[in-house]
Design a protein around this nucleic acid. Structure first.
Lengths: 348, 348
DNA sequence: CTGTTAGCGCATTCAT
DNA sequence: ATGAATGCGCTAACAG
């Protein structure tokens, strides 16, 4: 300090404290500092204490970049979801984040806004950020999976959840879509409903197909006709729900119940039905799928198939962590199916 | 290939393609490859094309770590929110992500679950991940800000939004809390309400104070008494809302309106009120704040103060980007106040 | 236009 | 128990 021959002006540029700074200050080598900081056993106790104290004082922060460069691990998991505006995916993310954090990993989250293009871009961002693994629920548009297959080729594990990719052999987390739908429709039948319509999601999503199959099989089981005029696939844009509900309501033989692909759809359906002056459930029953928190708040409250939302996230993260621990050659591809449960409320 | 003197077994270890691989294959130096890849002007067209083609073929991916090490930038922005389960914060995040992406930045998101401890931990994670800037909305518990001040000391800009830190001089994004509350209460008064209760948030949050002040001033302006028995601060745990609503309803002189700190609170309040057999708005009016999408779905639909939710996120990200472009010495600390607007629905 | 050299901050051999 | 040397993958300053 006082020995400096010239007036020394501190540079404006912000300087991150490094192990070299600590080493200099303590007159030891940076190797020793590094060892002390990483908890290497062969460091003298007093040395370690001095290092730790100074590191603390200088608010030293290990540099991710250099460590990543050496260890080739970012300790980061990426998660890509199709949308973010309804409560489902945020809840899933909470679960995933919980599990990831327990394991010392962080999450980089991005949402694709139901756009395939955005999804591809998001995937590329995840790659650029060197995520150690990726969790994905695809958009309603996605039917090319090249942007995900590249992860596999690079040895970065992927786990799909909720909206999964059928053609990739990787771990997946889904719920009992078939069973849940079956149970819901059977419940309607037992309530005496005979013309049950079904507003489903895009045919491209396997989740739609599974729920529709549950719907059909419940009808068949109870010897009710499966009428294609009562089944509609739509693209999940809530604004289009009125079109299809009005179509149902205008049929010569009006349905006496509607089973919807998810809760937001069911809630919008109820709005349209009430607007038309029909009574729920007297004139027509409505059932959703998911048990979003809103379902219990609306009036009448919505009968729905509950799925363990946070658990989907936790499980997906867990499968991913397991996969990350394995050598590429040992990758497993089990599909985990979580339980669903019918929640009967006023709308049925 | 054919010239290899020995049988060569490819290593199991996954190998990221690097610029050296490309350089070797093309018999040029890695510098040239680097230049070609980064779009440096002084590279022969044919060379660049060859490099790009090979890079593409090998699915080359720039290594974030090494670039970060050199450029000292992660191109990542952190965002810490108190919770994630209601629609407000996810919506804010969408806005922030939009703006960040436009500027070539990614978001690392974490939620503190309304816990100060978790928030501190999240902040430390953001530091470890070398975020270039941080967006924060604090938990209801937070009243020590050391974990955020460290960012300032390290030259990493912070922007607060919604729930801001009063003691730090940094950019902030809030809405017209005072004006919105004032307008809401004035609306109730004009509807003939004379005993207006107020269920507010924690006194520690300035957002609560501002809304409460708007409430009080509207009463005063219209010569109504400000009765402390009609003002309650609570900790935002929705499960506790029934306690306070029942308290209000059991008062000798029952209030004829309740102005709630936010929509989730108002919605739960309405549930309790209806359960008690009272009519909304005939017996008692309810107003919320935020215009979450649920507000229009419930019955009766909720009168509320709309705030530009996504815009809060966009603006916060924008202020942060501006701050990141500035030298530490030039940091600005403007507070941006976004407009609110009363949305009158059936509950008032 | 291209090659050579020197680090960025750190963990990790290999010495001592 | 500690220091010196090496290199992770890349950019940039410096030669030609």
């Amino acid at each position: 300090m006082g020995t400096l021959p010239f007036l020394y002006l501190a540079p404006m540029k912000k300087h991150q404290t490094t192990i070299v700074d600590i080493a200099k200050e303590l007159n030891i080598s940076k190797s020793t500092v590094s060892r002390a900081l990483t908890g290497h056993p062969s460091v003298h106790k007093s040395t370690r204490e001095k290092v730790l104290a100074l590191a603390n004082e200088l608010e030293y922060q290990r540099n991710m970049f250099s460590i990543g460069l050496i260890k080739k691990r970012s300790h980061t998991i990426g998660i890509i979801v199709p949308e973010f505006s309804r409560s489902f995916f945020p809840q899933v993310i909470i679960g995933a984040q919980e599990r990831a954090k327990e394991a010392g990993y962080n999450l980089i989250i991005s949402q694709s806004d139901e756009s395939y293009i955005t999804e591809v871009s998001n995937a590329s961002v995840m790659l650029a950020h060197q995520v150690d693994g990726l969790l994905v629920s695809i958009t309603k548009e996605t039917n090319n999976f090249e942007h995900f297959k590249i992860f596999q080729r690079k040895g970065i594990p992927i786990v799909f959840f909720n909206r999964v990719c059928d053609e990739m052999i990787v771990p997946k987390v889904i719920v009992e879509d078939y069973e849940g739908a079956y149970e819901a429709v059977e419940h309607l039948i037992k309530k005496g409903r005979k013309r049950i319509a079904h507003l489903s999601g895009p045919e491209s999503l396997s989740i739609s197909k599974r729920r529709t199959n549950g719907y059909k099989d419940a009808l068949r089981k109870h010897h009710l006709p499966v009428d294609d005029a009562l089944i509609i696939n739509y693209d999940l844009s809530i604004s289009k729900v009125p079109i299809y509900i009005n179509y149902f309501l205008n049929l010569p033989e009006r349905p006496d119940a509607i089973f919807c692909i998810n809760d937001p759809t069911a809630i919008e359906a109820m709005r349209v039905i009430k607007q038309r002056g029909l009574k729920i459930p007297e004139d027509i029953s409505v059932i959703g799928f998911s048990n979003d928190f809103v379902s219990s708040l609306i009036e009448p409250s919505l009968t729905t198939v509950e799925q363990p939302i946070k658990e989907i996230g936790r499980t997906a993260a867990q499968l991913l962590l397991e996969q990350m621990d394995r050598d590429v050659a040992d990758w497993k591809a089990a599909t985990v199916v979580l339980k669903t449960k019918l929640i009967v409320r006023e709308s049925s």
